[in-house]
Each structure stands twice: as structure tokens, then as C-alpha cells.
């Protein structure tokens, strides 16, 4: 039997996008919650919960982009052109956010500027990611081997909705992360945020899920056809289970449960999205096989990936383990 390399790679790319969302999501969320902490010591702690790991988290975004170029070059070129504006905005926002980790310690007078750059950059980057996602779900017009649509196609009520939904969702992840990594007043505040954003995220997921099937007949067919209809029942149910665990964990004062429950919501939503998409890479016209690079490219990169990816997951886990535990005021890396 022939190995279906494009299929395997679609799975790997999906995995790295998911890894990005799971890892950088809370990291951006922490940035968005940052302005709500007013005291200097609190801000230091909040930032330090992510300072040693943010770079690794963001590398998944590079893998998503670089990987796409390597294995689905046509998708890379069509999607990145179509989403030109939101992506450029995201990149610029990530510049502001990324440098703040170091710059803010280098100055006293201009510290407030880098505080703004950290939280503003996180917010704008998230919004842009959400808008880009919404625009992709909606579908991208293709002509020949290039993007065929207009310059503002990405901006629609739906993409704005997904933009805000992602802001809520990442903030939820950030709040739960802070619940896990901090204590005292910082944690109490984070817990309150988790309540609000948890409810709001649930609402947003519901809204987006209800609209999505009607954007594209293929999505709708997928959701009501046998056997995929099973997923249409199971996935939302499992989301509800996660929401229940989230609120239960918050109620009982658990440190970790809210974080993992909130991540569960994201993973499930992502799976739901995957079900709608498959087998398209650029809905509604290009499938995984249309955009794939030749097998020789896919094979060459796959050999190394199968070896390197477990290694990466291993040492990433190690880095998280080194920085395990609570980050306390006045303690830690400073």
C-alpha cells in the first residue's frame, strides 16, 4: 500500500497549529490580563510566569508557517496572500509583545510603554489570529494557482466574531494559567477572571458553532451525515463536560483543574473545526492533495520530523518541568 504522505502531513500541521493554540494561547492571554494587575510586584510575577517559555511557545507558530511552506506550498502562498492584512498586523503586534519581555526590565522611565506594548501586542495579535481563522473558515477564493479575491474579503461580521471569540478564549486560558502558577491576591483575581471569561467563551463557542455549518454547504452536510453526525453530538457534549470541570475546579479552589479543563475546550473546538474542514486545506476549493508538495519533499522532511518532534516535545516538557511550581512575589528569576 502507498503511504498517503499528504494525509500524514495534514495531521502533523494540524498538530502543530493545535500545539500553538494550546501553548501560546495562555501566554497571549496572560498578556491581555496584564493591565488588570496594577501593582508593580504583581505585574512582575504575572510576566515571569511566562518569561522562560514564551519563545518556545511561539516557535510553534513558526513551525505552522514554515511547515506549510514546506509541505503545502500552494496553501501557504494562497492563504498568506489572502490574509495579508490580518497577518501583517499580527506580526507587528508580536514584535511589540515579544520585545517587552526584555525591554521592560531595561528602563524605569519608559517601563509603562513596554507594559502597554506587552498587553496591547497580545490583544492585537490574538484579535488578528481570530479574524484570520474566521476568514479561512469562511472560505478563500482561488483563481488558477493564486488568490482570486479582494483586499478586504477577510473582514466580515463572522471573522470579527471569531476575532473576539479568540480574545475571550485566550484570556480564559491565561486566567487559568495564572490560577495554576500564582497564589494570593494575584490568583484570586485570576480566578474571578476565569469565571467571567469561561462563561463568555462558552457563549462564543456556541455562537460560532451555530453559524459555521451555514457558511458552506459542505460543512453542514458533514455535520448531519452519518457517521460524522456522531461527532456533532459527542463533541459538544464533551465541551460541556469540560466547562463543568472548569467551573467545578474554580468553585473548589483547585489550582490545576481549571487550566486543563479550559485547554480541553480548546482541543475539542479544534477537533470540531477539523471535522468541518477535512479534506480541504483551503476551503472551499483546494484539498490537502491539491496543495501538497511532491512526495519527495514530504518524505524528506517526514524522516527528520518523526525523529525530531518527539525530541522537541521531550525537551519542551523538561523546560516546563524546570520552571514548575508557583511563581512568588519577589522570588523567582529576579
Amino acid at each position: 500500500m502507498e503511504i498517503d504522505l499528504p494525509f500524514i502531513w495534514a495531521g502533523l500541521i494540524a498538530f502543530s497549529v493545535l500545539a500553538y493554540v494550546v501553548l501560546d494561547g495562555f501566554d497571549l492571554g496572560v498578556g491581555m490580563l496584564f493591565p488588570f494587575y496594577r501593582k508593580k510586584e504583581e505585574r512582575d510575577v504575572v510576566m515571569n510566569t511566562v518569561a522562560p517559555i514564551w519563545d518556545g511557545n511561539e516557535t510553534w507558530l513558526v513551525l505552522g508557517g514554515g511547515g506549510l511552506l514546506a509541505v503545502f506550498p500552494l496553501a501557504y502562498s494562497v492563504v498568506l496572500t489572502a490574509l495579508y492584512a490580518p497577518l501583517i498586523v499580527m506580526l507587528l503586534a508580536l514584535v511589540f509583545r515579544g520585545v517587552a519581555f526584555e525591554f521592560r526590565w531595561r528602563t524605569k522611565r519608559a517601563k509603562f510603554l513596554w507594559d502597554w506594548s506587552f498587553s496591547g501586542g497580545s490583544l492585537v495579535a490574538t484579535l488578528a489570529q481570530g479574524v484570520a481563522l474566521g476568514a479561512l473558515v469562511q472560505g478563500i477564493e482561488v483563481e488558477g494557482r493564486a488568490y482570486g479575491g479582494g483586499w478586504w474579503d477577510w473582514l466580515t461580521p463572522f471573522s470579527v466574531l471569531t476575532g473576539f471569540a479568540l480574545v475571550l478564549g485566550y484570556t480564559l486560558l491565561g486566567a487559568c494559567w495564572l490560577v495554576m502558577k500564582t497564589e494570593g491576591a494575584i490568583q484570586a483575581k485570576a480566578r474571578a477572571f476565569a469565571w467571567y471569561t469561561g462563561s463568555a467563551t462558552l457563549l462564543a463557542i456556541g455562537l460560532v458553532s451555530m453559524i459555521t455549518p451555514f457558511l458552506n454547504p459542505a460543512y453542514l452536510a458533514r455535520w448531519i451525515a452519518w457517521p460524522t453526525v456522531l461527532f456533532s453530538i459527542v463533541v459538544p457534549l464533551m465541551v460541556l463536560v469540560c466547562v463543568y470541570r472548569l467551573f467545578l475546579g474554580l468553585e473548589r479552589g483547585s489550582d490545576r483543574q481549571p487550566f486543563f479543563a479550559a485547554q480541553g475546550m480548546f482541543v475539542l473546538s479544534f477537533i470540531g473545526l477539523g471535522i468541518s474542514f477535512y479534506p480541504y486545506m483551503v476551503p472551499p476549493s483546494l484539498t490537502i492533495w491539491d496543495v501538497a508538495a511532491p512526495d519527495r519533499s514530504l518524505g524528506f522532511l517526514l524522516v527528520g520530523t518523526l525523529f525530531l518532534l518527539p525530541l522537541i516535545l521531550g525537551y519542551t516538557a523538561y523546560a516546563y518541568w524546570v520552571f514548575r511550581g508557583k511563581v512568588r512575589v519577589g522570588e523567582g528569576y529576579h
Binding site: 514546506a70 498568506l80 508538495a293 519533499s297 522532511l301
Partner: peptide, 11 residues
């Protein structure tokens, strides 16, 4: 360029 050279320089 990405579409054409991607299979070579992408990996």
C-alpha cells in the same frame, strides 16, 4: 516564488 520553490527550500 513560494508555490514554485517551496518544495525545495521549504523543507
Amino acid at each position: 516564488f513560494s508555490d514554485k520553490a517551496g518544495p525545495v527550500i521549504g523543507p
